[in-house]
Design a binder for these strands. Structure first.
Length: 361
DNA sequence: GATACGTGGGA
DNA sequence: TTCCCAAGTAT
């Protein structure tokens, strides 16, 4: 017998999670809240998202508030969540939605917005607007491959898995409650049909699950082997004046950590930097009032596709020259650093620069 | 289709 | 420690 949506929905009605962006049972969620949470939840855990979601609603109560905000304030509110293109697209999207007077209510309109792909469009359509579509995320892929014992590895099998997942939503009970059905699949994937050791005995679909029957559920979905993670090296410089101001700069708008702030530094490359090499990239040439550079230690940071080793150097200067701003430098008070658009990597660098034991140059 | 794109937590 | 992962999208 096939998995019956009615069994999943009955389970959901008893075990649904309460989450900040979710409406109460029987109510429809605010599209702004649904959209904001869905963008934040892309490749990101619920636990990590919750405090950011609250902070965003505090700072940007409506999509119009978000649209009117300065990009830098949006980036600062996003700092630490990662995948910063999401924040840039979020801001652009808010402006489009604000101009249009609200979110589009159909898949095509949603799909046309920046940062919204097939999954997020379907999630918003189902959860906020009640369209009978099944958003296919990692949870739904996992549940589906197990239910039907689909053993072809990701990502090649993605299309076939999505087609199979869509059939789950065909039943009348699912079409009658698209929002609940989508979120029921999420909750099942998050709480029962988990990646490592699924709690099949608690699963409302256990009797219908081919993966469980065959004893292969925990091994699904199969995944293609991942490439080894290369190592890159860089050096960044912590220069602080007598008043405690720190020198920062803005990264390019696109690409890794795009639009975020950083300590000045070298490029990140496969070859390690010698100290002499790195020092040719100091933000300020030796001048009166500038101390010697001291080595503060090394920060290791793991990105999605490479591991980065950063050597951190620190120096003091009496007063920043006026020319520093002309070269793209941003002078920031040390007590305002918390509120700035600094990615986690740079917070690590600041931490080691400000608290680490100094060794001589 | 393959690759770029963050981060922190858990096994 | 090391590896894997988490409500994907853009190019």
């Amino acid at each position: 017998m096939p998995p019956l949506p009615v069994d999943l929905l009955r389970w959901y009605d008893r075990h649904r999670r309460t989450l900040p962006w979710r409406a109460l049972p029987g109510r429809t969620a605010d599209p702004y809240h649904v959209w904001l949470s869905e963008i934040m939840l892309q490749q990101t855990t619920v636990a990590a998202v919750i405090p950011y979601f609250h902070r965003f609603l505090d700072r940007f109560p409506t999509v119009a508030d978000l649209a009117r905000a300065r990009q830098d304030d949006v980036m600062a509110a996003w700092a630490g969540l990662g995948y910063y293109a999401r924040a840039r697209n979020l801001h652009t999207c808010a402006q489009a939605v604000d101009r249009a007077g609200g979110f589009p209510r159909d898949m095509a309109g949603l799909l046309a917005l920046p940062g919204i792909g097939p999954y997020t469009a379907a999630a918003i359509a189902a959860i906020a607007f009640g369209h009978p579509v099944v958003p296919v995320d990692g949870n739904v892929e996992r549940v589906t491959t197990r239910l039907f014992a689909l053993t072809d590895p990701l990502p090649a099998a993605r299309k076939a898995i999505a087609l199979q997942a869509a059939t789950l939503g065909d039943a009348a009970e699912a079409r009658a409650r698209p929002s609940d059905f989508a979120q029921a699949l999420f909750d099942l994937g998050a709480g029962i049909c988990t990646p490592k050791s699924p709690a099949c005995v608690l699963c409302p679909w256990q009797a219908a699950c081919a993966g469980a029957r065959l004893g292969i559920a925990a091994s699904l979905p199969a995944k293609a082997p991942k490439a080894a993670k290369p190592v890159r090296h860089g050096a960044h410089f912590h220069l602080v004046d007598a008043a405690g101001n720190v020198l920062l700069r803005r990264r390019p708008e696109r690409g890794l950590l795009g639009g975020m702030l950083e300590l000045p530094g070298t490029a990140w490359r496969a070859e390690a930097w010698t100290m002499a090499d790195a020092f040719s990239h100091v933000p300020l040439a030796p001048t009166r009032g500038l101390s010697a550079w001291k080595s503060m230690g090394r920060v290791t940071h793991v990105f999605t596709h490479f591991t980065l080793h950063v050597d951190v150097y620190a120096a003091r200067i009496d007063r920043f020259p006026n020319s520093i701003a002309a070269r793209g430098g941003l002078v920031c008070g040390e007590h305002e650093l918390d509120g700035l658009a600094l990615p986690s990597l740079m917070r690590k660098c600041l931490q080691i620069a400000r608290s680490g034991e100094a060794g001589e140059t």
